[in-house]
Amino acid sequence: MAHNGEKDPISGVETTGHEWDGIKELNNPLPRWWLYVLYATIIWSIGYWIVMPAWPTISSYTKGAIGYSQRAKVAGELEKAAEAQSVYRDKIANSDLQGIMADHELLEFSLAGGGAAFGDNCAPCHGSGAQGFKGYPNLNDDNWLWGGTLDDIYTTLKYGIRSDHDETRFNQMPAYGTDGILDRAQIRDVVQYVLALNGQDHNAKQSAAGKTIFEEQCVACHGEGGEGIQEMGAPNLTDNIWLYGGTPEEIHKTVAESRNGVMPAWVDRLSDETLKQLSVYVHSLGGGQ
C-alpha cells in the first residue's frame, strides 16, 4: 500500500494509493478553497453557538447573545394577529347579535372565530361538526330544546343548562318510575303513545291508555300535542328527533329514570365577543331561527 506516485494507465491520473478489491482511487484534487469553505462553516457554527440558542444545560439551555426564541416570536405574532383582529372584536363587543348578522364582514369574522372557538370548547361534547351524540344535542337541525334564535342560543351558551350558575336554564323532568309516580304498565302505555305521536309502530290499545296518562302527567311541560315548550326547555316529542334515542327501550328509560343533562355556563370562561361569535356560528349551522 505504499504511496508510490503510481499513475492510472487509462486516465493518466495519479492514484492516492488507496485500493479496494483492485479498484484504485484516483487523486483528483479538491480545490483548496473548498476546504476553506469547510473551515468557514466550522467557524460559523462556533459563532452560531454564541449568538443563537444552542446547547442544552441540565435544566435549561444556552440562550444565545441575541436572545432569539421561537416561542417569543410566535407569542409576538399572535399578539399582532389579536391586535389586527381587535377592530372586529371591538365592533362585535359593541354590536348586538342581529347587527353582527347584518354586517357581512362581521358575519364572516364571527363564523371563522366562532368555528375556532367551537372546535376548542364545544366539540368534545357536541362533535366537531356539531352533529351531537347521545345526550348531546345535534346543533345542525331545527329542533331546539331552549330555542334557536340568536338570543336564545346566546343565553344558553352564557349560563348553561342545569349548570352551577345562578342564571342557568333549568328544568327537571320527574323520574316517573324511580319516584313511583307511575307503575311499569303505565309507563309502557305512555311510551306507546309517544311512539304514536312520532308515527312509529305502536300498540293502539296501549297507546290509547297512554294518551290519558300523557294528558295527566306530561302536557304541562310538553304541551297538549306533545310538541314541546321551548320556554321550559321541554322537548318536542312529535318530530322523531331524539336526544337519548327513539327506541321503545330508550324512551322507557327516559320516562322511568329521567335524564337531565348538563351544559356548563361559559360566561366566566369565554369573553363576551367569543360568546357572540359562537352564537352566530351555532345559529349558522343550519337550524337557526
Partner: peptide, 17 residues
C-alpha cells in the same frame, strides 16, 4: 360536509351542507 353527512329536520326533510 363530512360531519354530519346529513341532517334530518323536524318535518322529516333531509338537509345536506
Amino acid at each position: 360536509d363530512r360531519n354530519p353527512v346529513f341532517v334530518t329536520l323536524s318535518d322529516g326533510s333531509i338537509r345536506n351542507g
